[in-house]
Design a protein around this nucleic acid. Structure first.
Lengths: 201, 201
DNA sequence: TCGCAAGTGTCTAAGTAATCGACACTTCAT
DNA sequence: ATGAAGTGTCGATTACTTAGACACTTGCGA
């Protein structure tokens, strides 16, 4: 809407993206803690002054990178999924499908979970975000016609799904997106036959 | 040397690199021919005018990309290799090793050989460059103590090596750099026992 | 323990890369 | 034939990036 913002936001965002990308690559190369601001600007071919125009320090960059990726993950899954008395296990539910797509699209970032000295908070906040998505996006009330504690069920399935994701990522995305999804579906079929949403009316 | 050039060349090069990277990604997404200048600047988040500051058209960008990568390949192999009466087949000769490293480092680019509608000239000029390197870098006169036509020998081994490289790239770099190199060494051992350079004095 | 190398965070003046918007084209499909 | 989309160019404007200097902190080796 504001012309001045629109005209320049592209440049600013572009620059910040380059710093983020540099941070990702450098973490893989040398680990997070040993990275200096100088390393980042050298890698991204910017002047050190430029870095401080955009970020207070390395920590702020790291936090913005993590927050933006997890935010993107959340927003990429779309609207809450309401099956409405319908068996859905013949194909992966849309939110999980979108999660897989988003992670694959940004695999360069998510590969950071393979590293020990990596983005602070990644190893805790990534699975938490998966769980949050499950909690917010799924509206089920019974599983296989049996009422269940949905809070427990969502936590269980979210972390189970996270475990599979982690394995997929750590193995370097050997399976295609489609094969991985298929694998998850097959697994799900073995113990979940239907999920139901009991509508109000 | 020139201060004014040094200060600004970083910014220019950075921008051009972004256009090159955008072109690589877009070729993989939609093929070379359907890409427009607008696609490139949109993808790289630049204004269309900026593109024309740096390049005349898409073709010039494509040619510069190809030329710079093949130039980098050539210069990365280092000095001419002179074994001097020494058996070398226990390890890969340095030039080939450097070629493998360079390709792996720039695998994002070299993956373009997997595509049909790809960078014009890539499929012909890439192997030609390998051959050129072999022709310029190797100074051998006998193989297994037998004098050979070096022109024929270099062409034969260069294209053989190229075939292995292509397979490695097309399979998504499944083998590590080290494993691939080991494989080439083992193959070489089966038919080449020694190469010699007959010095003048 | 001293001293020095390397990094941090901040600031200003200056240069220039990138932007916007408009123009006159050309293609191409409807 | 008519409009949508892309091309190539230009000039004026903007604001991003730079260089360089400053005072400070850290850490390590002599």
């Amino acid at each position: 809407m504001n012309n001045e913002q629109n005209r320049t936001s592209g440049r600013q965002n572009r620059t910040k993206e380059h710093f983020k990308q540099a941070l990702i690559d450098l973490i893989k190369e040398q680990g997070y803690h040993s990275i200096t601001v100088k390393d980042i600007v050298d890698y991204a071919s910017y002047n050190r002054s430029t870095f401080y125009i955009h970020y207070q320090d390395k920590i702020e960059l790291a936090e913005e990178l993590l927050a933006s990726m997890l935010q993107g993950l959340e927003t990429s899954v779309g609207k809450p999924y309401v099956p409405g008395h319908k068996v859905y296990t013949s194909k992966l539910n849309p939110p999980s499908f979108n999660i897989v797509s988003y992670i694959y699209k940004n695999r360069n970032f998510f590969e950071l979970i393979n590293y020990d000295d990596t983005l602070p908070g990644l190893h805790t906040r990534f699975p938490q975000t998966i769980l949050k998505i499950y909690q917010e996006q799924f509206i089920f009330e019974t599983i296989n016609q049996i009422p269940v504690n949905m809070d427990v069920f969502k936590r269980y399935t979210a972390y189970g799904f996270y475990g599979l994701l982690q394995n997929w990522i750590q193995n370097g995305f050997k399976e295609t997106k489609e094969d991985f999804i298929k694998e998850v579906i097959e697994l799900t079929k073995t113990h979940i036959y239907s999920v139901e949403y009991i509508g109000k009316k």
